[in-house]
Simulated assay, not measured.
Amino acid sequence: MAFGLRTKSFAFIEGEAEFVSALQWWNRIDDSDQWQRGTYYALCAAYTLVSFIALVQLVRIQMRVPEYGWTTQKVFHLMNFVVNGCMAVLFGLYKSVFSIRPKALEQVLMELPGLLFFSTYTLLVLFWAEIYHQARSEPAQKLRPAYFIINGFIYLICLWIYMSASKTATGLEAAELFLSVSSFFAALGFLLYGGRLFFLLRRFPIESRGRQKKLYEVGSVTSICCTCFLIRCALLAFSVFGKNTDLDVLNHPILNLVYYLMVEIVPSALVLFILRKLPPRRVSDQYHPIR
Rank of each mutant, 00 (worst) to 15 (best):
A2R: 14
G4N: 14
L5T: 14
L5N: 14
R6G: 09
I13F: 12
I13S: 07
L23Q: 10
W25C: 15
R28G: 14
D31I: 07
G38T: 06
Y41V: 12
C44G: 07
Y47P: 01
L55N: 01
V59C: 06
R60D: 06
Q62H: 14
R64N: 05
E67A: 15
Y68P: 03
W70V: 13
Q73V: 09
Q73F: 10
K74T: 08
F81G: 11
G85M: 03
L90I: 15
I100Q: 04
E106Q: 15
M110V: 13
M110Y: 03
M110G: 08
E111R: 14
G114M: 06
L123W: 13
L124S: 10
L124F: 11
V125Y: 12
V125A: 13
L126Q: 08
F127C: 10
W128K: 01
W128E: 09
S137G: 10
S137A: 12
K142C: 08
P145W: 10
I149L: 15
I149Y: 01
N151C: 11
I161S: 05
S164R: 10
A165H: 12
A165Y: 06
E173L: 09
E173R: 06
L177D: 03
S180F: 00
S183G: 05
F184Y: 07
A187P: 08
A187N: 04
Y193M: 05
L197Q: 06
F204S: 14
F204V: 12
K213A: 13
L215Q: 09
L215W: 08
T222D: 01
I224N: 06
R232N: 03
C233W: 06
A237H: 04
V240Q: 00
V240R: 02
G242F: 05
V249C: 13
P253Y: 01
N256K: 09
L257I: 06
V258Q: 02
V263E: 00
V263G: 05
I265C: 00
S268R: 07
S268L: 00
L270I: 06
V271S: 00
L275A: 02
L275E: 03
R276P: 09
K277W: 04
D285N: 13
P289R: 10
R291E: 11
